[in-house]
């Protein structure tokens, strides 16, 4: 029963994806259909056009299993011969170092502002 609810809700969420694609085509937007769909779903929830219960179970499942949907693309990495060279290895190291710097900087800044703000409130 729970599986059927999740499946139906995923089908329902697709409506917003298609609406997003329609809006994108109509207005020639350089934004992906899924991002427009996100905004449309958010608006539909905020304006009480649809109820949270209609999408919550399916949406939570999609988000919980998000990594699964990245798996085929990760397998596809083997298609890029350029990656299996010194150049590719160097790029992987650059990506690792840069990701570390971005994560640390963002965490540090957000944490500082957060505690500054919280102390202000008290």
């Amino acid at each position: 029963m729970k599986i059927i609810t999740i499946l139906l809700q995923i089908v329902f969420i697709h409506i917003f994806l298609f609406l997003g694609a329609t809006v994108q085509t109509l207005f020639h937007l350089p934004i992906p259909a899924s991002m427009i769909g996100l905004v449309l779903l958010f608006l539909a929830l905020s304006l009480h056009i649809i109820k949270l219960e209609w999408v919550e179970k399916g949406g939570n499942w999609l988000l919980a299993e998000l990594l699964l949907f990245f798996v085929p693309s990760a397998v596809g990495v083997v298609n890029y011969n350029e990656m299996f060279s010194l150049q590719g290895l160097t790029t992987v190291i650059i990506i690792g170092v840069s990701t570390f710097i971005v994560m640390a900087t963002t965490a540090f800044i957000a944490d500082r502002i957060y505690f500054y703000k919280e102390r202000d409130v008290q």
């Binding site: 995923i10 969420i13 697709h14 917003f16 994806l17 997003g20 992906p32 259909a33 899924s34 991002m35 769909g37 996100l38 905004v39 449309l40 779903l41 958010f42 929830l45 905020s46 949270l52 999408v55 919550e56 399916g58 949406g59 939570n60 999609l62 988000l63 998000l66 699964l68 949907f69 990245f70 798996v71 085929p72 693309s73």
Partner: peptide
């Protein structure tokens, strides 16, 4: 392809936690 396709509705679903 059907699995990769699910990235689309999954992106849409990110509206739920924000809401």
């Amino acid at each position: 392809q059907p699995l990769t396709h699910m990235l689309g509705p999954a992106t849409v679903a990110f509206a739920i936690p924000i809401y």
